[in-house]
Design a protein around this nucleic acid. Structure first.
Length: 597
RNA sequence: GCCUCGGUAGCUCAGUUGGAUAGAGCAACAGCCUUCUAAGCUGUGGGUCAUGGGUUCGAAUCCCGUCCGGGGUACCA
């Protein structure tokens, strides 16, 4: 059992005995002692002054005396400026370390059949263009979130809603029909999603030209935008699609298939996957049905032109359109249908949507609408909202071509990792295949960590020139530390050194060793906290802190050369435990760690 | 206009439920490879935590105002 809990209980007892007041366990605050002050854990005594009616110093002494007497692992205490600093017996830290090292999945809670079922939606691409940097952030956050939720003992279903229908797809389809010359991924050697994306761009180019020509011919901008032949043709395709025109459907399936094959390659590179994929083309009708049901039930209302609306004035919001006057559905309609199908398919306890913060309003409304429609889970939807990725020259705009393509970025990261590794003379003796795999692990580690270490809620800046970094607070630094520990452990094995240690063995720990063990014991709380706050960044920054601390320890202490067997055993176990935590922590971020680098 | 989220070192970012003297990395400068991997370690310089008030033993953190920026705001997804 962790000592914090014992301490809290004893402080409650102490306050009761000394000052005759019963306080709540939660009001007791215990934190790690500052590095420059003697002690391990610090009790903040200020909240108790009103009960003790004494000075902070005197109150701290009262409590310190009580704890020293009543808690076995407390060896002594100091009082500095009203803070009670407890010094904990070294034996306790050794015991904690041995427990951590022996645990099968230290810091993680095993789930069961009865564990809450959490569905996490992430990725959710449109099928008219390849994935870009913004999608990468989404995918990494979603995957990591799922891993963290699992580590906290939940059952998790990862899901993806593919926006496979709509005017955007028809634009690519029309461009391909008109200018495609029968090109396919096979005939051109171009990845399917990129090929379709090229036609989307092509469409936009022609569309813009047409608008310009029409405006030169005297039309107003709005009229030109409506009358341009390309957009008229794309709309026709959409109508044909809705009417299930066989030829249109065939082209639609064919081009979407190209995109899926392309996406799957990128997903594999990113290391993300899904348990269940929904397609908008299969859910939007269910949404329409729900809206019509709501209309009949009087929850929604219809305007003269036939469009269907929700009045959310009572919620402090506006009017929201749900069906256009031609009966076609909008974004919201589809999400209603998708949500309904999901809750039919799975016994979901909690639904989490990983979607950018530009859609905060959308999810606020979705939650209310589902609630109005009588779904008791409507209010419980959780929108995991994250900020945008910005480039040095501003936002990414796909139409303006200022996007960082996911595949290009990954390829570039791998290349830089390879070059750096070769320059540093690492991986000698590795086969080309082994080395290639390691470059990939390093490259993806750098990319993933760079994105996940940032607080999801905030917008983040990505500078392609500077961000591809392998030094400092990076995934590579963490991987490097892991590889080095593994190397030490291999050497120990080669030399026939094994670690033998029990908690009772007398041991004088150095300040760095003790600090490191303390950080190790924080890991389970970190995972739990991250699970509640849904924050991979919390895990990332913890792991970095631990690794930094380990590196300092590593440079100050020899591990293998130590002559004292007890000390050497302790350091070996400490190193091994740290490496296990690195591996677990990084896996919660979806990052692999290499045995060598 | 209204709603919402941000503003911490030159740059990119941390900062647990309010706790002690605000922390890393990058960039700059100076050191450290014959030992277990130098993708590392050590040191120096760098801060009005946007700003003004409030709450209290104590505020980067909570509340209010102001300034700046992102996003949203009735038929794009």
């Amino acid at each position: 059992m962790l000592i914090e809990q014992t301490l809290k209980e004893n402080i409650v007892k102490a306050v009761s005995e000394l000052y005759s007041v019963e306080i709540q366990l939660e009001t007791v605050l215990i934190q790690a002692t500052r590095k420059d002050v003697e002690g391990d854990l610090t009790v903040v005594v200020f909240p108790f002054l009103r009960y003790s009616r004494k000075s902070p110093e005197q109150t701290a002494v009262d409590l310190g005396h009580f704890l020293e007497k009543n808690v076995e692992d407390i060896s002594s205490y100091t009082v500095v400026r009203g803070f009670l600093n407890l010094i904990i017996a070294q034996k306790y830290w050794v015991k904690q370390l041995l427990e951590a090292n022996a645990a099968a999945q230290y810091g993680c809670v095993a789930g069961s059949e009865e564990s809450p079922l959490i569905m996490i939606e992430y990725s959710s691409p449109n099928t008219n263009k390849p994935l870009h940097l913004g999608h990468i952030r989404n995918n990494l956050l979603g995957y990591s979130l799922a891993e963290i939720m699992k580590a906290n003992g939940n059952r998790v279903v990862k899901t993806n809603i593919v926006n496979d229908r709509g005017i955007h797809i028809c634009k690519s389809m029309y461009a391909w029909q008109k200018w495609g010359e029968g090109k396919t991924p096979e005939s051109t050697g171009i990845k399917g999603d990129h090929l379709v994306g090229e036609f989307y761009v092509l469409f936009d180019q022609h569309y813009k030209e047409e608008i310009r020509d029409l405006m030169n011919g005297g039309l107003a901008k709005e009229e030109a935008e409506q009358q341009a032949p390309s957009i008229v043709a794309a709309r026709e395709l959409l109508l044909k699609w809705e009417a299930r025109d066989p030829e249109t459907i065939a082209l639609w399936s064919r081009m979407n298939q190209w995109v899926y094959e392309g996406f799957n390659v990128t997903y594999k590179e990113l290391g993300v996957n899904f348990d269940k994929i929904y397609y908008e083309s299969e859910t939007y009708l269910a949404g329409k049905e729900e809206v019509m049901r709501g209309l009949e039930a009087g929850i929604f209302y219809q305007k003269e032109d036939g469009s269907v609306w929700a009045d959310l004035a009572g919620e402090g919001l506006d009017q929201k359109i749900l069906l256009r006057n031609d009966g076609t559905s909008v974004y919201m309609t589809q999400d209603i249908g998708t949500a309904k199908l999901r809750f039919n398919d799975f016994a979901i306890d909690k639904m989490i949507y990983v979607v950018g913060n530009e859609q905060n309003y959308h999810f606020q409304v979705l939650s209310i609408l589902l609630d109005k429609l009588g779904f008791e889970w409507g209010r419980g939807l959780h929108h995991f909202s994250y900020g945008m990725v910005e480039l040095p020259n501003g936002k990414m705009k796909s139409r303006e071509g200022t996007v960082v393509d996911a595949d290009d970025l990954i390829a570039e990261m791998v290349e830089v990792a390879r070059r750096t590794s070769v320059e540093l003379g690492k991986l000698e003796g590795y086969s080309e295949k082994e080395a290639g795999e390691t470059y990939k692990i390093i490259a993806m580690g750098a990319l993933k960590y760079f994105i996940l270490k940032v607080d999801p809620r905030k917008n983040m800046l990505f500078n392609p020139e500077e961000s591809i970094d392998f030094n400092g607070n990076t995934g590579s630094f963490i991987q490097y530390t892991y590889a080095r520990i593994r190397s030490v452990l291999r050497k120990a094995e080669e030399r026939g050194i094994s670690a033998v240690l029990t908690a009772d063995q007398p041991l004088m720990l150095t300040e760095k060793e003790q600090g490191l063990v303390k950080s190790v014991t924080l890991f389970p709380a970190t995972v739990k906290e991250a699970g509640e706050a849904y924050s991979p960044a919390f895990i990332a920054n913890y792991v970095y802190g631990l690794v930094k601390e380990y590196n300092q320890f590593y440079h100050d202490h020899s591990i293998l050369a130590e002559t004292d067997e007890t000390v050497r055993s302790f350091r070996l176990i400490l190193s091994e435990t740290v490496s296990k935590i690195i591996k677990t922590g990084m896996s919660l971020l979806g990052i692999d760690v290499p045995e060598r680098m």
